[in-house]
Amino acid sequence: MSDPILSVRNLTIRFKGDGRETQVVHGVDFDIHPGETLALVGESGSGKSVTSFALMRLLPEAPRCRIDGQIRMGGTDLLALTEPQMAAYRGPRIAMIFQEPLTSLNPVHRVGDQIAEAIRFHRKMDRTAIRARVLELLRMVGIPDPERRMMAYPHEMSGGMRQRVVIAMALALEPELLIADEPTTALDVTVQAQILDLLRDLQKRTGMAMLFITHDFGVVAEIAERVMVMYSGRIVEEGSLGAVLERPRMPYTSGLLASVPRFEDAGQSKGPLGTIEGFVPSPDKLPAGCSFHPRCPQFRPGLCDQRMPELLPHGRPAHPVRCLRAPDLSLVPEVPA
């Protein structure tokens, strides 16, 4: 396998406030390889967005927030960079798109100017070249009639068109890695489908890698090759799309999957949906042992509440799972007769 484009090692994030320190990410490790899409899945409070913000160094400064570990990109540790050095990475090397496209666009500027600004900030190019590049980008993200649309203000566009503009802006400097934080959550399903198609297509053409943050396993299946499931600041399961979605080994993953209603069962009474009782614990009140044990249907007293399991390979195909009971559990799919 090729060298990873980004390696995260032992990433730990703590927030300070009101004289208390709260650890929200606990030693996260992962690699992203060129051209691949890695999905980071979790519920609210799992630490998935904080992790992505840390990669972009968008978290608050030192006393309020402490980040430890390494985020290596091509031999450089991003955490060791000064803010101006980091600014040179944002855009040409890593770019990010967010859930609500309106917040990433300035309402008083024309969208074309905003994309041009993003280019001018990093590249020395003359006006006509920049204009040509803006048009090319707008065309690339599937905005019809780009000459006219580049003169529009954000509020004159639909949500889907705005998200396309945001994507054009993110891709303006051809980043090696695109971090997409729930980019389709605020969109209608038909628009979401178009944006997902667009991202997949752009990735094929540019060869960029993508870290896709979402809570929706449906979206994961549409876009990712590899999946990491996060719970309470730790990665609890990681593997290929097939391994995680079809043969999950961590009870949290299988619980989440069971709680999603399926098209196949539409209109047929299959009884209640699977649920995970309770909810994600507050990061400053994590239970002892495995953080998931109070909600886990497979909880074994004296085992799961004693120590935090390691992320070890289990299952077929073997993939990293953080569960003490993984060796003796079989969460195989059930084929109804």
Binding site: V189, T190, Q192, A193, G218, L245, F263
Partner: peptide, 21 residues
């Protein structure tokens, strides 16, 4: 038909054909 084809499903394997609008 368009709505149904656009809704993402949590299933690995080949993607369903999408009906574009």
């Amino acid at each position: 038909e368009t709505l149904l084809s656009a809704a993402p499903q949590p299933k690995a394997g080949p993607r369903r054909a999408r009906i574009a609008m």
